[in-house]
C-alpha cells in the first residue's frame, strides 16, 4: 500500500499538457466548450458493443486512461443507458444485437446523441454482407455522427464527439 502510494506521488500527473499534444488538446478544449453549450459541461456516454471485434473498445478504453483522460473535459462513461446522454455504438450490428440496440436506444432519455464508431459501425465494414450482420448502426437506429477508422485513434474519437455535438445544434 505504501509502495503504491509512493509510486503515485512520484509519478505525478501523466496526462499530457497542452504544449506536447497540441492537436488533441485543442480538440479537447473545443470539445469542453461545445459540451458546455449543449449539455452544461457534462456528457455521460454509454458504450454499446453491437457485435464489434473489440478493436474499437480498446481505443475507447484508452480514452479513460491517464494519458488521454476523458474525464477532465466533463465526459464520463456510465453503466446504464438510462444514465447516458450519448450512445457510442461500435461494430457491425449483428442480427442478435439489433433488438438489444434498439431497446438501448429507447431506454436512453432525451436529449440524446448516437455516435457510430469505426468502419464497421458506419456500414458493416469488413463484415458487410455477412449473413450474421444486420448492417451498420444507421440501419437500426438514427445516428447523429460517424467516427470512421479501423479502429479510430482516441484523438479521432474525441474529434468525432466534438463533431457530433456541434452538428446537433
Amino acid at each position: 500500500m505504501l509502495r503504491q502510494l509512493w509510486t503515485a506521488l512520484r509519478t505525478g500527473i501523466v496526462t499530457e499538457p497542452p504544449a506536447r499534444v497540441s492537436d488533441l488538446e485543442r480538440v479537447g478544449e473545443r470539445l469542453a466548450a461545445e459540451i458546455t453549450r449543449a449539455f452544461g459541461r457534462s456528457l455521460h456516454i454509454r458504450q454499446v458493443d453491437a457485435g464489434s471485434p473489440n478493436c474499437c473498445e480498446i481505443e475507447i478504453s484508452g480514452l479513460t486512461g491517464p494519458h488521454y483522460d476523458l474525464e477532465r473535459f466533463g465526459l464520463h462513461f456510465v453503466a446504464s443507458p438510462r444514465h447516458a446522454d450519448c450512445l457510442l455504438v461500435t461494430g457491425p450490428v449483428t442480427r442478435n444485437m439489433a433488438e438489444p440496440l434498439r431497446r438501448t436506444w429507447e431506454a436512453t432519455p432525451d436529449p440524446k446523441l448516437v455516435i457510430a464508431v469505426g468502419d464497421c459501425g458506419r456500414d458493416g465494414g469488413l463484415f458487410r454482407g455477412s449473413y450474421a450482420v444486420a448492417g451498420g448502426v444507421a440501419d437500426v437506429i438514427p445516428v447523429d455522427a460517424v467516427i470512421p477508422g479501423c479502429p479510430p485513434s482516441p484523438a479521432a474519437l474525441l474529434a468525432g464527439l466534438l463533431d457530433a455535438i456541434r452538428r446537433r445544434r
Binding site: A8, V14, R72, D85, P109
Partner: peptide
C-alpha cells in the same frame, strides 16, 4: 493520485444540473 488530471471539483454540480433538465424514462 492515479496520474490523471481528472474532472473539476465542480463537476457533480454540472452533472446534477444536466440531469434535472433531462427526460425521465
Amino acid at each position: 493520485l492515479v496520474g490523471r488530471r481528472g474532472p473539476s471539483p465542480w463537476q457533480p454540480y454540472a452533472d446534477l444540473r444536466k440531469l434535472l433538465a433531462k427526460e425521465v424514462v
